[in-house]
Every structure is written in structure tokens, then in C-alpha cells.
Design a protein around this nucleic acid. Structure first.
Length: 835
RNA sequence: GCCGGAGUGGCGGAAAGGCAGACGCGGGCGACUUAAAAUCGCCUGGGCAAUCCCGUGCGGGUUCGAGUCCCGCCUCCGGCACCA
């Protein structure tokens, strides 16, 4: 249009705009919050990052999603806590120390500085005054304090336990550091060693952690299922088999007590404590011991190789099947795990595939004791697939003919009546091993005294500081071990010479309570004040990657439960709602340095600005789905923002200052159409955010509104100032959570004062959303044949009559009798004819 | 092997039993321009055209009506993986 300005550029200076508003937010402390009992609170949290040095697109996505939620809830009148911090202990810092000869501490803090700068440049609405870093003594002091509370409650204990050991690096490896049974650093095959390790007694909470999943309707079903499987509760029977010629019993755990008549041999784990006595009289003792040593060494490789071979040896001992009275041989097998059940099983090859494989390899007898309800009886001599379904009991003495599930209960009853065992529940979940033979972690606050034994460091002596002046040598050993000033100490109890624990804690411990520290981050006297935590907790919306579905999310739930039991917090559950975002892909694969398909957020922000980067990521896919990166798509988001900027600029320039507030119905049809579109868009965007977190469709609705606005503007017809003013105001408010900088700029262009992020979320008028007439689809036999415009409140009869009167409808009816007419008010008519 | 999730235009994706493909990308055409870019419009699943027909991984079913619900498969992605 000639009368719209001609001198204005077609793109806005995103760099100037974004920096201007970021500066203003910071000056005004816009996102700083404090407890305010007069307002409803909302705690929005994204998983805090490990400070690797640079943000990747997964981070940008995570924090963009969280920022939409935080900004939206703020506009909805909530007192929103939206903090950020650093999961700053961990192995990469130590690897960098060894490789680049730089101490983990400055390496980490430099990384934090850079990532903080990146986050600020993205304009995420964090309350930066609450920033925490788990590697700071002000933080880990309280991690240590929490450890002591666990210790006092009997939930932290020490025991000997097998660990992954790299003989080349001479150190312990975490499970994650073992790749295909080899050391991730030097590729040496990993072996097993026994070490004294600290554990948290999470198994004591197994049942509650399981049950409480039912109280988390706001969590994805997928995550809850993964946790259920991880906890792995199963009901079974422990049965003690007398060992022949020994005053000793062999307890086994089985979920299939109904198959006990088919038990033809026993298998114990190589580490089973009875093994030395079982093999004492065997002529093959030396060979067996060699075999056990082999299994132990190959354990990790065999376990990670697909379908590890089942190997074993006969111990020379027998036990007695308490139901058949038969002698059955006891074997040692690599497929029986010491850590589950009793470390021993009764093998029923006919009804368990693993037992069958083992039996076939070593020629052990197979006996079918469950017959299929229909279909042929498996042939014990030739079967290669175990029959594991339910059926009818056979070859089972007095239990023959019973349904096996019924028989299972009867046999369990009999076991208990005879006092040779009892029903029990078994979990797959193990206690949480928290000891790490690492430097860059939270020191475990324990000293060992020759006189007093294990002595916790008194709370008033915390923190146990991590010494900074240590040398990193590529020995793989924690430098703490050789740091005499650290190791040598005095016993807090008797004052005698003592040694410090040199292990540090698993970093998952640090991240199991950070959401509590965010509630009270500067507290010098406590980990957190009860009233502050009780005001903010639980986290209303937690957002992060699905890779934390099991460990982090389970450990955090465990911590919160324990702390509630200890009376330190009120909320029993840390995270009310959970959103697991999808991955960011490029060319169909996850972005990774090794694949060379990464996109640098800094480069995108430099080229297009933060608003564009955020808008693209939110628009390209719904949050839970994987997102395919597209440079052209980013370009599209950039174009859209410029389009909005031009729209607002042109109309303001054309019409001058615009009045605030709600518009009356439009002065003509075009204005009324636009007004309806404005209100419909407010309704759609609100529903998409509120009910489904479908930000992609929310943004597409805003795009449609902008398109409608352009049609109105370009038509050159008369302007309805009130409708335009209201429309632009609502448009800018709707855009605020998605493109926070541009929204501020446009708000200012509209001549409005105050931050757009402090305005209330726009409302829609339900009357304005409704059109007077609606289009009805007319179908004949389910196929669309025509359309029909009727009054909004037309009766079913009127619609039916109007539809039947249409020529095209009559044509397709073709004189056949009308069997039925389905009328869906406001939507469609379906005329059903025979044939 | 077990447990999840997903298969829709050239691409990312819409559609919570009711017009399949909203919105965006890509492509085409037009306006503006000396020209190009930018911008503003219009068109864009396939069948050469159609008012007709076909189309949401495959095969069945329920329904007036199915991308959506049910049964049986196939493919891809993710998690667990000798848990007795």
C-alpha cells in the first residue's frame, strides 16, 4: 500500500532488540521471585545441565520449552520459580585434567561461565540469583550433610562388593564407563574385584517407590513402566533343599514352585558362599576353581555379548528334592547371578529356556511336568523350546491334573506347612552404590579410626573440602589417595590418628536434591529452610530428556521420600508433572560430535537471533516427539517474526496510537471476521498450552492470525481502529512466551508501558468466537458431495431438509430410498441410502 | 527375547470417530522492480482434465462414517536384557 511507510526496513535488528530487552530485564530483576503466600505458586524446572562447556540443541530445546511454561504461568498470575544451576561434578572434568593438564575446577568454572552467557543470550527467564553449582562447597557441604542424615537413619552403609576393575588403569570403573566389557578409555577387558563400597539402602523403599508411581498421573506412562520394570517386583517362594551328606540347606528362589517335580538339577552362582564346601570332595576341584576364576574374569564381557553362552560344571554334591525325594546334582553355572534371589536356582529345563539350553549342553535330564491345555505334549527327549505357558500339572504326584496356577499355591502352602521355606517377594532393584574412586566429586564425610572404626564427620566440621592443589597423573587413580594432608586426619571421636574416606559420591547424589536447594539457595545454616521448601515444593512441571527416566528420576523420588520420612520436607513426591522431551535429530540421527551433524546454537543465534531459534524449535514438533533440524525451517521462523514486526509497525504507523482494551463487534464484515479470528486464536493458543503443551499448534494458530491480519490490511478497506488495536494487543501477548524479546519490542511499539511479561494472559469472549452461520458438510453414504451454509442455531430438521433439497445430493441418491439421515449439529449431514 | 513409541504429500508436521494433509518448508505463477533480492498475493497429494476415482505401513473387522476404535501382521526408533 502506498500510504504505508516506505522507508522502514523489512527486517528488524534482532541483535539490538534482544540485547536491549535482556539488559532491561536484568536491570529490573524481572524474573526474581520470593515466597508470596498471597499468590498461587508455580515451580517450573528444567533438568540442570552438566557444564560440558557449550550448549547443544537439546539444551536449547529443553530450556525453550521450560521458558514457555514459566512465562505463560507468570502471565496467568502465578508466582513462578524458574531457577537454573549446574550439575558440576563428574568425570569429563577429570578427563580434561589428564588430557589438557588443566585442573577440573577452573575447567568447570570456565565452562559454567560460557554456558551461563549462552543461556542469558537465549533470554530464558531464570531467576539467576538462585543459581547453584553442585561442585561449590556451599552446595556440597549440604550434600555431605544429607549423606550423614542417611547414615544416621541406617540408610547409608558400607559393604564389600564386586566392582568393575580395569587392570591397565588400575582403577574402578562405573558401569557407564564399561563399553562392551572393555574400559572406555584404554579398551582393556574389564574384570571384577571386591572392594569396600558405600551404598544407599534404596531397596528398603522398593515397594513404596513402586506403589507411589500410581500417584503420579502427571508423568508419562512410558517412564512409569520403565521404573516399574527396573524395580522388578516378583512374587515367589523360597525353598530350602537339604544338601546330601552335609548339615546344610541350599535355599532357592522360584516364581514357578508349580514346576518343582520337574527340577532335575540345581545351579549355584560361581560366587555362592557354599561353593568351597560343595566342591571340597570333587576330584575336579582344581578345574572347577579355574572355571570360577574364568567366569569371574570374563563376567563383564560375557554379560554384554549377546546371548552369552551358558557354561557350568558339576560340583560333585547333591541335594534332595523335598517333594520327590530324589537326589539331584548341584552345578555351578555362569548364568545364575549372586545378586538376585538366593544366588541359587532349581533348574526345570522343560519349563525354562535357560535351564533347557544348559541341560542340552551338558546332557542333563528333562522332565515335563506341565502339559499344554490344548495341543500336543512336548517331548522331553527332543524339545528345544521350553514350555513356559500355563497348563495342567503332570508327573507331579498328588498335584496331577491341577491347573498349574492352583498347584503353585498348593505347593507353596505345603512348603510353608513343612517349614522348608516360605512365600516371599523379590525385587530386581539393588541398593544404590554411591562410592566412586574419583577426585572430582563430593567427598564422603567419613573417617576411619583404628580404635572407633567408621566415624561420621561431625556436622559442624562440614564441609569436608576437596583439596584443590592436587596433581593429575594418568594413573587412573584418584589424586585424593596420595594427598597425605587430606587422607591423614584425627578421629572426631577419640582424637587419635585416622584416615579419611578417599572415595567421592556418585554425581547422581548431587542431583537428587538440587530442586530443594533452589528453594533456599543461600542458606548458610541449613540445606534448606523447611518453610521455603514447603512453599515451593513440589516442582509443578519438570522437563528434561528421557535418558533420565530411570536413574535420576528414581533417585530423586527416593531422596524426597526419605527426607519426608525424616521430617525435613512435607511433600513426598518431588515432581508433580513430568515432560520428557524428544531428541534433536539431524538427517534422521541424533546430533553428536562423533557423527559430525551438530548445529551450534551460538551460530544460529548470531545469524537469526534467540527468538527465531526458540520459535523454530518449538514449532517444528510437539515437545515429546523427536525433532528434525531444518535450516530452511529456521529461515521460515525468522521470516514469520519479521512478518509480525512489519504488521505491527505498518499498522501503528498508519493508524497512530491505538486504544487499549476490548473491542466492540466490528464495524463491517471484514472487521468482524478479523475480530472473531482474534478471539478464536486466543482460545486455541490457550488450550494448546494449557491442556496439551502442544506449542507447535499454538504457534501455527498465531501464524494463521497473522495471515488473517495481512488479508485485512492488504485489502485496503476501511479500518476498524478498535478491532485492530485489540487484535494487535492480543497477538503480541500470545507471542510473548514464544518470542519474548520481539514481544517486548512490539508492546512498546503499540505504545504500551511495562513489560509485556507482566501483563495478564489475554482473555477471549466466547460470544465473539461464534460465527452467525456455519458450514455443514453434506455426505451421501459417507462421501462428501456438497456443502451447506446454515444459521448457527438451525434446528436438526432444518438442516436435514436443506441438505436433502440440494441437487447434488438428489443426484447421488439417484431415486433410491433414504434409509437414514445422520445430522451432527454444526458439522455435517450424512444421507444413507441402500445399495 | 521382553517392554514402550512411531509409520500420513517432495520434507517437518495438523486432524482427541465427522471435509485427510491446518501451519511451515520446498516448488510454481503473478504483483512491485530497469533487474535481482526482499516483500505482498494466488496455486501446489496422485490419477494429463473432471462435478469422477484413488489415497494415512499391510490384511481383516466394528460403525451411517475410521488416520483415529478392535483383531492379526510388517518396518523403523528407544529402553531393559541370563532377574529364576
Amino acid at each position: 500500500m502506498a500510504r504505508t511507510a516506505t522507508m522502514r526496513p523489512t527486517t528488524y535488528d534482532f541483535d539490538a532488540v534482544e540485547q536491549k530487552w535482556q539488559r532491561r530485564w536484568e536491570e529490573q530483576d524481572l524474573y526474581r521471585v520470593a515466597e508470596d503466600p498471597s499468590k498461587p505458586k508455580y515451580y517450573c524446572l528444567e533438568m540442570f545441565p552438566y557444564p560440558s562447556g557449550k550448549l547443544h540443541m537439546g539444551h536449547v530445546r529443553n530450556y525453550s520449552i521450560g521458558d514457555v511454561v514459566a512465562r505463560y504461568k507468570r502471565m496467568r498470575g502465578f508466582n513462578v520459580l524458574h531457577p537454573m544451576g549446574w550439575d558440576a561434578f563428574g568425570l569429563p572434568a577429570e578427563n580434561a585434567a589428564i588430557q589438557h593438564n588443566i585442573h577440573p575446577s577452573p575447567w568447570t568454572w570456565d565452562n559454567i561461565d560460557n554456558m551461563r552467557r549462552q543461556l542469558k543470550r537465549l533470554g530464558i527467564s531464570y531467576d539467576w540469583s538462585r543459581e547453584v553449582a553442585s561442585c561449590h562447597p556451599d552446595y556440597y557441604r549440604w550434600t555431605q550433610w544429607l549423606f550423614l542424615q542417611f547414615f544416621k537413619a541406617g540408610l547409608a552403609y558400607k559393604k564389600r562388593s564386586p566392582v568393575n576393575w580395569c587392570p591397565n588403569c588400575a582403577t574402578v570403573l562405573a558401569n557407564e564407563q564399561v563399553v562392551q566389557g572393555r574400559c572406555e578409555r584404554c579398551d582393556t577387558p574389564v574384570t571384577t574385584r571386591e572392594l569396600e563400597q558405600w551404598f544407599f539402602r534404596i531397596t528398603q523403599y522398593a515397594d513404596r517407590l513402586l506403589e507411589d508411581l500410581d500417584n503420579l498421573p502427571g508423568w508419562p506412562e512410558k517412564v512409569k513402566i520403565m521404573q516399574r520394570n527396573w524395580i522388578g517386583k516378583s512374587h515367589g517362594v523360597e525353598i530350602r533343599f537339604p544338601i546330601k551328606g552335609m548339615d546344610e540347606v541350599l535355599p532357592v528362589f522360584t516364581t514357578r514352585a508349580d514346576t518343582i517335580y520337574g527340577a532335575t538339577y540345581m545351579v549355584v552362582a560361581p560366587e555362592h558362599p557354599l561353593v568351597p564346601r560343595l566342591i571340597a570332595d570333587s576330584p575336579d576341584r582344581a578345574a572347577i576353581e579355574r572355571f570360577i576364576e574364568d567366569v569371574r574374569r570374563q563376567d563383564e564381557i560375557a554379560r554384554t555379548a549377546e546371548e552369552g553362552e551358558k557354561l557350568g560344571m558339576f560340583t560333585g554334591s547333591y541335594c534332595v528334592n523335598p517333594f520327590t525325594g530324589e537326589d539331584i546334582p548341584i552345578w555351578i553355572g555362569n548364568y545364575v547371578l549372586m545378586g538376585y534371589g538366593t544366588g541359587a536356582i532349581m533348574a526345570v529345563p522343560a519349563h525354562d529356556q535357560r535351564d533347557l539350553d544348559f541341560a542340552r549342553r551338558y546332557g542333563l535330564p528333562v522332565r515335563v511336568v506341565i502339559a499344554p491345555k490344548d495341543g500336543p505334549m512336548p517331548d522331553a527327549a527332543t524339545m528345544t523350546e521350553a514350555f513356559v505357558d500355563d497348563g495342567i500339572m503332570v508327573n507331579s504326584g498328588p498335584y496331577d491334573g491341577l491347573a498349574n496356577r492352583e498347584g503353585l499355591e498348593r505347593i507353596a502352602d505345603e512348603v510353608e506347612r513343612r517349614g522348608i521355606g516360605q512365600r516371599r517377594v523379590q525385587y530386581r532393584l539393588r541398593d544404590w552404590l554411591i562410592s566412586r574412586q574419583r577426585y572430582w566429586g563430593c567427598p564422603i564425610p567419613i573417617v576411619y579410626c583404628g580404635q572407633c572404626g567408621i566415624v561420621p564427620v561431625p556436622e559442624d566440621q562440614l564441609p569436608v573440602l576437596l583439596p584443590e592443589d592436587v596433581a593429575f597423573k594418568p594413573t587412573g587413580q584418584s589424586p585424593l589417595v596420595e594427598k597425605e594432608e587430606f587422607v591423614n586426619t584425627t578421629c572426631p571421636h577419640c582424637g587419635g590418628a585416622a584416615r579419611r574416606e578417599t572415595d567421592t559420591m556418585d554425581t547422581f547424589v548431587d542431583s537428587s536434591w538440587y530442586f530443594l536447594r533452589f528453594c533456599d539457595p543461600h542458606n548458610k545454616n541449613e540445606a534448606f529452610a523447611r518453610d521455603k521448601v514447603d512453599y515451593w515444593m513440589p516442582v509443578d512441571q519438570y522437563i528434561g530428556g528421557v535418558e533420565h527416566a530411570i536413574l535420576h528420576l528414581m533417585y530423586a523420588r527416593f531422596f524426597q521420600m526419605v527426607l519426608a520420612d525424616l521430617g525435613l520436607v512435607t511433600a513426598e513426591r518431588p515432581f508433580e508433572r513430568l515432560l520428557t522431551q524428544g531428541m534433536v535429530l539431524k538427517d534422521g540421527a541424533k546430533m553428536s560430535k562423533s557423527k559430525g551433524n551438530t548445529v551450534d546454537p551460538d551460530a544460529i543465534v548470531r545469524k537469526y537471533g534467540a527468538d527465531t531459534a526458540r520459535l523454530f524449535i518449538l514449532f517444528a514438533a510437539p515437545p515429546e516427539r523427536d525433532l528434525e533440524w531444518s535450516d530452511a525451517g529456521v529461515e521460515g521462523a525468522y521470516r514469520f517474526l519479521n512478518r509480525v514486526w512489519r504488521l505491527v509497525g505498518d499498522l501503528v504507523e498508519e493508524l497512530g496510537p491505538l486504544p487499549a482494551g476490548q473491542a466492540a463487534p466490528g464495524q463491517d464484515a471484514a472487521a468482524e471476521d478479523l475480530r472473531r479470528m482474534v478471539h478464536r486464536t486466543v482460545q486455541r493458543v490457550t488450550q494448546d498450552i494449557e491442556e496439551r503443551f502442544h506449542f507447535n499448534t499454538a504457534i501455527s494458530a498465531i501464524m494463521e492470525l497473522v495471515n488473517a491480519f495481512y488479508l485485512y490490511k492488504e485489502s485496503g478497506g476501511p479500518r476498524d481502529r478498535a478491532v485492530v488495536a485489540e487484535g494487535l494487543e492480543k497477538l503480541v501477548l500470545l507471542l510473548a512466551p514464544f518470542a519474548p524479546h520481539l514481544a517486548e519490542e512490539l508492546w512498546e511499539m503499540l505504545g504500551r508501558s511495562g513489560s509485556v511479561h507482566e501483563q495478564p494472559w489475554p482473555a477471549y469472549d466466547p460470544e465473539a468466537v461464534q460465527a452467525d452461520t456455519v458450514e455443514i458438510v453434506v455426505q451421501v453414504n459417507g462421501r462428501v458431495r456438497d456443502r451447506l451454509w446454515v444459521a448457527r442455531d438451525a434446528s436438526e430438521e432444518e438442516v436435514r431438509a436443506a441438505a436433502l433439497a440440494m441437487p447434488k445430493v438428489q443426484e447421488h441418491i439417484g431415486g433410491r430410498p433414504v434409509a437414514r439421515v445422520v445430522v451432527v449439529p454444526g458439522r455435517l449431514v450424512n444421507v444413507v441410502v441402500a445399495g
